[in-house]
């Protein structure tokens, strides 16, 4: 099972990378303990039938695992969000891309913990391939100043030295941690 909130986001972004997306957008907005996530990509997309099958845990498209009968990425997200009393939607258009949204209250007893967000964003940037990823992060907490930052994979790669070698990734991690710090 996925452990924290970031695991679900990572899984969906990995789907986007595997769907051949050139551009991926991620928005993580937290307000008064409610978190809203949007992942948009311009990958291969799915038609209505493919989408309904993608939401079925006992289905996979068969291109990677010819004999396997499970595909758990999106179903895990749906299960976790519904357990936490949240909402979700997946829209997709064949040849255009996919848009996944989900939202839930972090204070719900069955909500997954937020976990390490800078570490998550680093992981989102560390897949192989030349995709662009734009992350927009906000957090509004009563009585505290608003947190807002964004990061673009191409800019971070340029500034941190490619995001390929471990040294560059460690630098990017320090950068992302400083964005999320209060």
């Amino acid at each position: 099972m996925h452990r924290d909130f970031g695991d679900y986001v990572l899984d969906i972004v990995q789907n986007a990378v595997e769907a051949g997306a050139r551009n991926i957008g991620l928005r993580i907005a937290e307000s008064d303990g409610r978190v809203e996530v949007l992942v948009e990509d311009d990958g291969c997309g799915m038609d209505r039938d493919e989408l309904s099958r993608a939401l079925d845990p006992f289905h996979t498209d068969g291109t990677k695992h010819a004999k396997r009968k499970v595909g758990l990425g999106l179903p895990f997200m749906v299960q976790a969000v519904e357990a936490a009393g949240g909402t979700w939607s997946v829209e997709s258009e064949k040849g255009k891309g996919t848009r996944v949204r989900f939202a839930f209250h972090l204070g719900h007893p069955d909500a997954p913990p937020v976990g390490d967000l800078p570490g998550l964003v680093l992981s989102l940037m560390a897949f192989e391939g030349g995709y662009e990823l734009e992350v927009a992060r906000t957090r509004e907490t009563p009585g505290k100043s608003r947190l807002a930052w964004s990061a673009r994979r191409s800019e971070l790669a340029e500034a941190a030295g490619g995001l390929r070698d471990a040294e560059s990734l460690a630098l990017a991690k320090a950068f992302l941690e400083s964005q999320e710090a209060d």
Binding site: K64, S123, A126, F127, D165, A166, E167, S168, L169
Partner: peptide, 16 residues
Amino acid sequence: ERHGIGASVVLAQTGC
């Protein structure tokens, strides 16, 4: 990073 070899090790992620 602890071994100080970060510049010569490519670390990447892939799918399943």
